[in-house]
Design a protein around this nucleic acid. Structure first.
Lengths: 187, 187
DNA sequence: ATGCGCATCTTGTCAATGTCAAGATAAGGT
DNA sequence: ACCTTATCTTGACATTGACAAGATGCGCAT
């Protein structure tokens, strides 16, 4: 009996999220419809709404998962500020669909407790690891903002294709060069 | 005779773009419909499509105008790298609707010649003014990328509300502090 | 084992939207 | 005065998000 034709799918929630991630990867976080995801998953047009309420609900689930994975990735590099920056860029490129949703709060319910918790955990890694760069405790906050801005800006520009080098070069290598230049000068 | 009831509106194109900018300011670059803009402008539901072809066409016009204004703003500060960074942040906040479209190429036709020309002009200001920071000609490119990333990252994070300070503080002052910290360290 | 509660998924429907085709209007040149 | 042409309207159609009501069957209590 074919799994796909079961009335009770079993883990449709997972399947819909994965379909959403794929669709986002193909045409951005707004280039698809709930009904299209349903068709891809082989279920009825209203099945996604049952699990997520509405489109925002689905994107909220994506954001939660995204921030969780993001936190994991940053934590794995947390002992080295340098590598945290690289991990930031790397995550965005390896998990682009997540990233494209995460920093667009108007797409989902940013006030959702699960989102806020996952978001806060990821932010804390940045805050604590950036302290290593700070010239003094009174500059901790600005140092975090500067380091975060640098990593986030590079990532956003790369993803949007604004960097003319986008097509030819390896983003991670480029990010390493940039971080090296700035951190080298800071020393 | 009331201007608004004329069959031939006269400068409907302008009015529709302004309505779009206002709508984007209220609910983001996707939170409105062409028909709503038509209603706001007091014209029929298909009038916008006549001037812009489709929604992407309208957003392309917004992007062109945005990059032109952006280029102007950056040029006015071009003699001081410091001030170019500030102008970057300032533009995004003063003309948020434009900015929210400009760096989201999937929303419009990025291959449009007018877009590319306006984009290139703005980019050139960044490239030339960033040279002043470069430790040597072989580092010009990376310096541009770093400075651009810093300004763009701060701006994006601010606009998305990711910086917890967003609500209380003046963004320009915060940006000045950040640039001061980084440029000070680079000296 | 058996019957039932309830989460899971489907079917049907509605207003709203983007887009296209065809028609109406009038501005401006000849 | 006419007529070409850009501007705008009217009408239509497929698609979408959302909601309500119904069908299905899993798994638990008995």
């Amino acid at each position: 009996m074919r799994e796909i034709d079961q009335y009770h799918h079993g883990n449709l929630k997972r399947v819909i999220i994965d379909a959403a991630l794929q669709a986002i990867g193909e045409s951005g976080p707004a280039g698809w419809s709930l009904r299209e995801l349903a068709r891809r998953a082989g279920v009825s047009h209203a099945a996604p709404a049952h699990h997520f309420g509405d489109k925002q609900g689905l994107l909220t689930a994506v954001a939660v998962e995204g921030f969780a994975l993001f936190g994991d990735a940053l934590e794995r590099a947390a002992d080295d500020v340098w590598e945290v920056g690289i991990a930031y860029v790397r995550f965005a490129i390896d998990h682009r669909p997540y990233f494209e949703v995460m920093f667009r709060p108007e797409l989902y319910r940013a006030d959702d407790p699960a989102v806020q918790a996952a978001h806060e955990r990821a932010a804390n890694v940045l805050i604590t690891s950036a302290r290593a760069l700070s010239p003094g405790p009174e500059h901790d906050r600005m140092t975090t903002i500067a380091a975060w801005s640098l990593a986030h800006g590079f990532t956003s520009l790369w993803l949007s294709g604004a960097l003319p080098e986008s097509t030819h070069e390896d983003p991670e290598a480029l990010a390493r060069s940039m971080i090296h230049l700035v951190l080298g000068a800071l020393r």
